[in-house]
Write a protein that binds this DNA or RNA. Structure first.
Length: 560
RNA sequence: GCGCCUGUAGCUCAACUGGACAGAGCGGCGGACUUCUAAUCCGUAGGUUGCAGGUUCGAGUCCUGCCAGGCGUGCCA
């Protein structure tokens, strides 16, 4: 891998300069090695000398010159990577690669195929990612869709760098919201039976509740009208809950997101885990009683104040259940827990992390806050409340724009930037969505391959001989090849930064370079060697496009 | 009041965590299909990165103070 190789060459060059007394010794800083925006700045460039200037108290250009000289020395002793080194500006070291090295790297891309871009530094350590976790009392809203797409792509990335990943959905199927939901469905059911009934003030007023009641009415008929209120509410609530859960599951499937586990809060309560945790905390001196309630001493672990676990009416809080749930996750032995939460939960992060630390799991829980989606329609804000009838569900949106567009729109944005989502704009732009730009590049290459086969040109098998690859000399070809090589580091960085959106940007740049290459050069020509070389370059590009799209969970079509 | 996030082209967003002339898409304007897919390509216009200071070789990025927006700040979930 070129970047890695250049990094170690730079380190060697510096140490060599030190050993010859040209530069004072100091620990090598974390330096940037990047593909510069401008071609004049080389194939790769580094700020190493600029960083060293601080600790060495030395002119950065002089440091750069010394390193550059040693670098060329190393190169002359037979390491065929660098063609030329230049010192530029305040002390940048610009590196120009040997043509042969670029071509040999290209064969690596082809050789690794579907594995190109993968790493193993995760060492098989296990990560549990919990995301979406929407309450099963209403359909998913657009924000859930965003976090689902983000979470799934993040999981793909973590897997690509060598972690074992499990996707988990925490089901809040317990507590007052479930009761309110049941009461709301019951009211709608009774109305269908011609009886007087009102949806409670703090119930759910969305039209989907009517739809569910209607379905139940059709399936169950009027048999619950006469039942005892307790039994009726319990049954209707259960039926509605399972319908809602199915709706959520289906929507996520339509987005291409599958969870390994649906963890039920209710089951956890039934197993007595919540009570057990509370008594353990009391015994361990981490919780105490005051004003008739039980409090956890989270403030001893960095929280602003202590938090209630059990209210004075005897009911455990949501926080208590969350502690039990996260303790359960921690005890399952994962190397790390990642939660993706809506930004409206950010006030909750510290107290839960405090609770984890109190129980002997400091640093185990990583919380990623996904910013909310601001839904608009033609510039006008749209409310997303489950309680009012006015709502655009994520599923409706998904139907209108399709899985690939939806995922891509969400994944082009950094997760900590609030997203403005204009429905009309999204519909209009779905035809112009950049996802098609990337997919088109992939389909276009497939199309060229089909054409080649018609012409009897071989498109599969084997790495071209060196003299064939050397036919790749055009600027567009070299630019394209160099762009391919950025993919590996990009996957690593995107995984470590939890930033799948970096991939979309890259794929668009890569596609642009391919479209440009296509525009200016014919792949299939009368020149057999040149044709072979260009087919090979095209196939490498297709491979990287496919690998990138796979990480995003977006399809790579063979024709469009 | 306090805490977290955000403020970049007309619009939606990037900018590899302090690097070289701040970039894409959409929208605007002008061009390119007899040749492997025009869902493409080329050119052009568009910016005091919310404001004011500071840190240094170098700031959209870091520090301070303002301004604006979102979210949070429950014995709610």
């Amino acid at each position: 891998m070129i970047a890695k190789e250049l990094r170690s060459l730079l380190g060697d060059a510096y140490r060599l300069a030190v050993s010859e007394g040209l530069l004072p010794p100091v620990e090598l800083p974390e330096f940037v090695l990047e593909r510069p925006r401008q071609k004049a700045h080389g194939h790769w460039a580094t700020n190493l000398a600029l960083l060293l200037a601080g600790s060495l108290k030395e002119n950065p250009r002089r440091i750069a010159e010394a390193i550059a000289a040693k670098l060329e020395g190393i190169e002359r002793r037979g390491n065929p990577t660098i063609e030329r080194v230049e010192v530029a500006g305040p002390g940048f070291i610009n590196l120009f690669l040997k043509k042969e090295r670029i071509l040999s790297e290209l064969t690596r891309v082809a050789g690794e195929g579907d594995d190109y871009g993968k790493w193993s530094f995760g060492e098989g350590k296990s990560i549990l990612v919990e995301f979406v976790s929407a309450n099963p009392v209403g359909p998913l809203h657009v924000g859930h869709g965003r976090w689902a797409a983000y979470g799934d792509a993040l999981c793909n990335l973590l897997e690509a760098v060598g972690y074992r990943v499990e996707r988990e959905f925490y089901l809040n199927d317990h507590g007052t919201q479930m009761e309110n939901f049941a009461a709301s469905v019951e009211a709608r059911y009774l109305q269908l039976g011609g009886l007087e009934a009102e949806v409670p003030e703090d119930g759910y007023h969305g039209s989907y509740v009517k739809d569910i009641a209607q379905q139940i009415w059709e399936e169950e008929g009027d048999r619950w009208l006469e039942a005892s209120p307790e039994e009726r509410r319990r049954h209707l609530g259960e039926l509605a809950y399972h319908k809602m859960l199915e709706e959520i599951r289906t929507t996520l499937e339509e987005l291409g997101v599958r969870f390994d586990r649906w963890f039920s809060e209710r089951e956890m309560h039934r197993r007595g885990e919540v009570e057990k945790v509370i008594s353990q905390l009391l015994q361990g001196g981490l919780a105490y009683e005051r004003d008739g309630a039980i409090w956890m001493a989270t403030s001893r672990f960095g929280d602003e104040k202590d938090r209630v676990l059990v209210r004075s009416n005897g009911q455990p809080t949501y926080f208590a259940a969350d502690i039990a749930y996260h303790l359960d996750k921690a005890r399952r032995g994962y190397w790390r827990l990642i939660n993706i939460w809506g930004a409206d939960h950010h006030g909750y992060v510290r107290r839960l992390q405090a609770a984890m630390e109190a129980q002997g799991y400091p640093g185990k829980l990583e919380v990623i806050l996904g910013q909310l989606v601001n839904l608009k329609r033609g510039g006008e804000p749209v409310r997303m409340s489950k309680r009012t009838g006015e709502m655009v569900t994520f599923r409706e949106l998904l139907k209108e724009v399709g899985k690939d567009v939806a995922r891509y729109i969400f994944l082009t944005r950094s997760q900590d930037s609030p997203l403005e989502f204009d429905i009309e704009l999204a519909k209009a732009e779905s035809m112009e969505n950049p996802v098609y730009y990337v997919q088109y590049a992939h389909a276009r290459i497939c199309s060229i391959m089909r054409y080649a086969e018609e012409k009897g040109v071989r498109t599969v098998g084997g790495i071209p001989a060196p003299q064939v690859l050397e036919r790749l000399v055009a600027e567009e070809e070299i630019d394209l090849a160099l762009k391919l090589f950025e993919f590996e580091e990009l996957v690593r960085d995107a995984a470590l930064e939890r930033a799948p959106h970096r991939l979309t940007r890259y794929l668009e740049d890569l596609s642009a370079l391919y479209h440009l290459f296509y525009q200016r050069h014919r792949v299939i020509s009368d020149d057999p060697e040149l044709t072979e070389a260009r087919i090979f370059l095209s196939l490498c590009t297709r491979q990287v496009l496919a690998n990138g799209l796979r990480l995003l969970g977006v399809s790579a079509p063979e024709r469009m």
